[in-house]
Write a protein that binds this DNA or RNA. Sequence first.
DNA 1: AATGAATGAGTCTTCATTCAT
DNA 2: GATGAATGAAGACTCATTCAT
Lengths: 214, 214, 214, 214
Amino acid sequence: MPLNNVESLFAASLQEADLSEKQKAVLRASLTLFADKGYDRTSTADIARLAGVSEGTVYKKFKTKREIFEAITAPFVDQVLPTAAGEFFQEIAGTAFPDFRSLLTFAVHDRIVFGLTNRRELKIFVQEIVSDPKMFSMLAARVSRLFTQGLAPLFKQFQDTGELVRWDAVRIGRHIISTVLAYVLPSVITGTASMDAEQATQEIVAFLMKGLHP
Amino acid sequence: MPLNNVESLFAASLQEADLSEKQKAVLRASLTLFADKGYDRTSTADIARLAGVSEGTVYKKFKTKREIFEAITAPFVDQVLPTAAGEFFQEIAGTAFPDFRSLLTFAVHDRIVFGLTNRRELKIFVQEIVSDPKMFSMLAARVSRLFTQGLAPLFKQFQDTGELVRWDAVRIGRHIISTVLAYVLPSVITGTASMDAEQATQEIVAFLMKGLHP
Amino acid sequence: MPLNNVESLFAASLQEADLSEKQKAVLRASLTLFADKGYDRTSTADIARLAGVSEGTVYKKFKTKREIFEAITAPFVDQVLPTAAGEFFQEIAGTAFPDFRSLLTFAVHDRIVFGLTNRRELKIFVQEIVSDPKMFSMLAARVSRLFTQGLAPLFKQFQDTGELVRWDAVRIGRHIISTVLAYVLPSVITGTASMDAEQATQEIVAFLMKGLHP
Amino acid sequence: MPLNNVESLFAASLQEADLSEKQKAVLRASLTLFADKGYDRTSTADIARLAGVSEGTVYKKFKTKREIFEAITAPFVDQVLPTAAGEFFQEIAGTAFPDFRSLLTFAVHDRIVFGLTNRRELKIFVQEIVSDPKMFSMLAARVSRLFTQGLAPLFKQFQDTGELVRWDAVRIGRHIISTVLAYVLPSVITGTASMDAEQATQEIVAFLMKGLHP
DNA sequence: AATGAATGAGTCTTCATTCAT
DNA sequence: GATGAATGAAGACTCATTCAT
């Protein structure tokens, strides 16, 4: 079963050519602090200190503190989620899943690993979603589209074989996502990685296979 | 089916005798602003303005901004959650549920109504949980105890009749909670109440009854 | 040797008819707090709390915080000092001091007891003098007048008998006062009364008798 | 007779390399205002205005208003007093004083000049001593030690030659200090320098030579 | 007379942001 | 590109004072 190859999404975005070493340090420090204390409770002085640069340097590439935030989260929402979804599809398209359980097992495990790997970015993201309803709505719409457009045909295939209940794709997606999040979010929020991805996958799949059975 | 009779938990706490009308306005304004913009992005000047009082009045009863926050959330975590759980148990104990579906339907519906009714307090709560890992851990421990101590015997009863899968109480609780939250949290975060509690209850119960079947 | 009979100057001023029991409590509390923490660091809320009255009551008799201060210090400077001086003179006039040592011993002991008795009032006074040059100048002028007008004839008498050096009255006064203060002020500032007035008088007189000898 | 060469103690501390021109202006303005109005009655806005800088600048180097106070007084108590005492001793050790009068004349004149030169720092110091008994006790202990340890041998020398009364060093010190302060403090408190150091020295020495004679 | 809730100007402090070097 | 001193607009909080009851 192929593993998620976008493990270090943020690290990848740090490779971008137009960022000096110090700018990257700023991003890294911001990521740490935003995740630890939240955006509002992190000062630009904090960032400069942890990054080991001057306060002026923080503002050389990024015009505002908000821009730093976006440099961290925008890739996440604009590229990473779709990209991840894209790769996800390619995996799915490239692999002939013999049954729904195989697909579910792969998908759940993949997303758990993704979530744990990008734990800190995810936490920043979650904090913002909870504070900013617009961001939540945007994300919800995007995920809805992913299910209604991208995944619906796949679901139909398993619904036709009698392996998947004939609910609409969004409802199915909602059940899957909430079940996965129930295992991933505690690690994201507490910042600990103490989770057995294999065991979690087993438990989730066992529950979902029954819950989503026709 | 008995309905949640703690609908107006916050309103109830506003009745407390030692709060003047203006002090109550401060609490009300704080609740609104904290829920809308978050604790950090709400200034005491904002609160004073919305409450229609001077900034000095804000600090007459509450010595710090944080105390206002706690005046809103502490009742929630210290009394409301246990109280709600207590009433919940009394309902359950007082009512002889003929089967697991009846219990589940009641519980799910009750919590959905509770969540929607206390939408704004819940949002403030969620914002803090996401920012403060300690609060998350505390809440997780409390809920765990609720399931392992309070609900385990009830679960056992239905496990013996073959209606409920023989998983441990925490895992069962996790699946139930995450499924309910998947329906409630969107309303909490966006601040809209546009949700059909009956329909949601039906969908959730249908899913859980299968997922938690032995 | 007559003893200072104005021991409780402040207590006396508290007897005034136009002060209710609560108003007196306000004055008492203010005296304590001003002496302990200084005028600026004492809030009217502190005063109300220690006096056991409401904040409104503090302002019933006294229109401003400053007025409370003056109610404490004005008697001190306007009546107490002159009054004390007056009584002092009467004692001196009434008593035929056989020699300068007798006069000095009486005066020094009297002023030490006076200072220790009114320790807290004195401390408030000293704090204000140090902060407000005008008050210092006023006091200096008053004391100068006391010596040049009131005491000069007396000094002359002992200068004529060869018991007292022929310096001007202000200089003599300066030496006497500074020597006495060197013993009294430490107790005033630290707020402790741990001082032996008899021993101090002896030491001071021994030193002054030599220093002021022709 | 050597003159005190630490005349501009504060100015010297302003030369420190890690202070920008504006930071020095902040210290200078604070010194002026603290001396004029006292610490509590000086606002940081006052300081910024007089220094010609923004309020933010005031807090760039000094994290609190109290730190500014300490930047002014700490050198005074931690370095200046001991240093001054040290130089004072070296002068005394380096110079062979033929008699007690020579020593006294030098010491008194030196301390008068020192006090007048550092008039404003001294005033701030005095204000704090009067408000804060702890500071007074600390200073008193330090000065006591200076006399019992550093000066006692010197005193003994003159006591053996019959030039100095056989009182303990602290008592001798107390008489000297109070007599000097009687001349210096008026200038310190009123902020005027209108004093003839030579004349004052003469008067003080004349009085002390007699008062401290065996 | 007494209360205590209410006020609003003012205080210390923080912080995102700018700019001369 | 990088620095860090400087800014000034808020921010949380205090407090002397007032006034309806």
